[in-house]
Amino acid sequence: MSSGNGGPAISVRGLRKAYGDLAAVDDVSFDVATGEFFGILGPNGAGKTTTLEMVEGLRRPDAGDVHLLGEPTWPRNPRLLPRIGVQLQASAFFERLTAREQIHTFAALYGVPPGQADDWLERVGLTDKAGSRTEALSGGQKQRLAIACALVHEPEVVFLDEPTAALDPQARRNLWDLLRSLNEAGRTVVLTTHYMDEAEALCDRVAIMDHGKVLQLDSPSALVRGLDAPVRIFVSPHLVTADDARAVAGVDAVTDDGTSTVLSTRSPSAVLTRLAELNALEGLQVKAATLEDVFLDLTGREYRA
């Protein structure tokens, strides 16, 4: 699983794409290391899909340079194609084929034997749906089939465009487990998402995109740490009043949100120890800053997917 030249699996420099006056992708640069789980996070219309499709070699950039596994992706590069796997959207199937026929067809496009295709059906948990037409599958089942079809030829780099969009929470969690296992098997995975929690849960590093630009790029924890945002501790006002709270050492600010007394602090362990001494732990909640706070800090706007 190497790019063959020891460099990054993906290298993107100064990528641009405009539709008329709209700069859909505006000077985007990043590297993805071999074996990394890389996320592009942003609200709808941020330019995630356009970026991804230029990296895959589907769209011609207006400017900039993309190298995938050491090779340029534009124009269409047939040597590269068997080494990458792509899930575009969950409807990219042949009409009126069953799940098994679908993945066998994709396998044949890559010269992969049918047995290996059946293995993938098994790995994404669709063996009992193998005889069902794609049109009859649920959203989550379609996504898993699309991912299996993208992986049937065992690619080194996998691109997934919002694989969990429109799934219910349970189906999303199931898919997360599958995506983690793909990365743990050594593949480089690039995923776009508009879910903050998904990026935090899955990605080694996240590029936060808005209006075609990458605003920040780092690991989710480093992004949050970089915020230097306080931890908020919620306690019952019957156990700790606002005045009690202000007396606790290390508390920066105290507010009352109507149901709880909220303590903001940058030294949560000291504050929690003191609250334990006050016997005020019942019903206590701790909220650290999230990527949503990072987005708010970067854009001045609430994050809305």
């Binding site: 070699g57 589907l58 194609l81 990458i84 575009l88 199937f93 009409e95 496009l109 890559y110």
Partner: peptide
């Protein structure tokens, strides 16, 4: 039309089949 809308046409473009 159908293959373009479902992105199957693009998906096939990304397979090694000419």
């Amino acid at each position: 039309q159908g293959w373009r809308n479902s992105k199957l046409l693009r998906r096939l473009q990304l397979s090694p089949v000419p």
